[in-house]
Write a protein that binds this DNA or RNA. Structure first.
Lengths: 193, 193
DNA sequence: CGCCGAGTTGAACTGAATCAAGAAACGTGG
DNA sequence: CCACGTTTCTTGATTCAGTTCAACTCGGCG
């Protein structure tokens, strides 16, 4: 499937966008391909894009005291960004790293904001994306507050079994908020996962 | 100050709303007063309002295995809601508790969504509120992931000294993700706070 | 005055971190 | 295709932050 057709489908899960409006969006995207290990956005930069992840997988992480902390994994068909930086226009704390070779469609902030201003559909898309991101973050916050490392791991296995299989122990543990050694020990207790 | 005038001012920090549009919003609010300890929203209910907190303070918490976990404190001049439930239309896990006698202006979801549909300003307000909530949640998530209990406490003291003074040890500790005893011990080391 | 909930303190305990070492997996170049 | 070095994963031993449980203090209020 074409990247843009893929994106149109993904977007249609948020809003049913009339064809004319879609032209508006489609007019100004840029396609990027990056190899595994490359950075889509680096800490320190101001994020000016929202990307649609057509192919591959991405990890959003930040560094504190030399240690990496992962806030999210993203896969094909999702919209990705260093969203905090995008919204605040401040340098990003988040780095976006390609976990495999990736293909993304980039939408520049200026174009998006033009679209926001020109169309109520624009604002609606922006609202729905923000609302969606909010729910993700609150779920995470509640899990980090109230669950033990082991519970968080099992919940992740339930909800995203594919993710748990393909992401490295190092990255998974930094997402769960524990050390790789601890995740290794948790896994030993439950050989099937 | 009148509750509605107060709300108009607070809203103006998000968007400069033309007077005619403001009439739209102002037409359909309901005012509620609740005594300390009462619930603005209870877990299990579907949240159908966003409230403007004119007077008093509110705590949002949820219960897991009989233990309370606080996700947010809110004060005069802020918009409050069991926002996750509001967005998903699912029963709320969050309970909103009045920490003091409170006065709120309630805006019903139906009215808000009518406003969204009728005006690009509506969608914009919705977007900006969602984006604002998102940034709050991500900050919290990053703190919970990467900071020790002691660091989280000190950061809270820096950013919200008033909050730390007026909120009980029990509630504060449930926000920081630790037991009251642990917060007590942290505080002992730093007598001035 | 006496109770009661909130806060503090101490002592023992525990989940996860840290440190260190070995085993497996991976990529690269010969 | 193998040999090598590098990174990732696992395992064990020890340490430590924060919990748990229990006792005690304090301040407010009937």
């Amino acid at each position: 499937m074409e990247p843009m057709e893929h994106m149109r489908q993904a977007l249609s899960r948020f809003v049913a966008l009339p064809a004319s409006q879609w032209e508006e969006v489609a007019a100004s995207y840029t396609q990027r391909s990056l190899p595994k290990g490359a950075f889509l956005t680096e800490a320190g930069q101001v994020e000016r894009h929202i990307y649609f992840l057509h192919k591959g997988a991405v990890r959003n992480y930040f560094i504190k005291d030399g240690k990496e902390f992962t806030v999210a994994f993203h896969f094909e068909g999702e919209f990705v960004s260093a969203y905090y930086s995008f919204l605040t226009r401040r340098p990003s704390e988040i780095t976006m790293e390609a976990l495999e070779d990736i293909v993304v469609c980039g939408i520049h902030q200026d174009d998006l904001y033009r679209f926001y201003a020109a169309s109520a559909y624009g604002e609606r898309i922006g609202r729905l994306i923000a609302e969606h991101q909010y729910t993700r973050r609150l779920e995470r916050e509640m899990e980090l507050l109230s669950l033990t490392a082991e519970e968080r791991y099992h919940r992740l296995v339930e909800r995203h079994p594919a993710l748990v299989r393909q992401i490295s122990v190092k990255h998974l543990s930094s997402y769960l908020g524990i050390q790789p050694e601890s995740l290794s020990r948790i896994r030993r207790q439950f050989p099937k996962n």
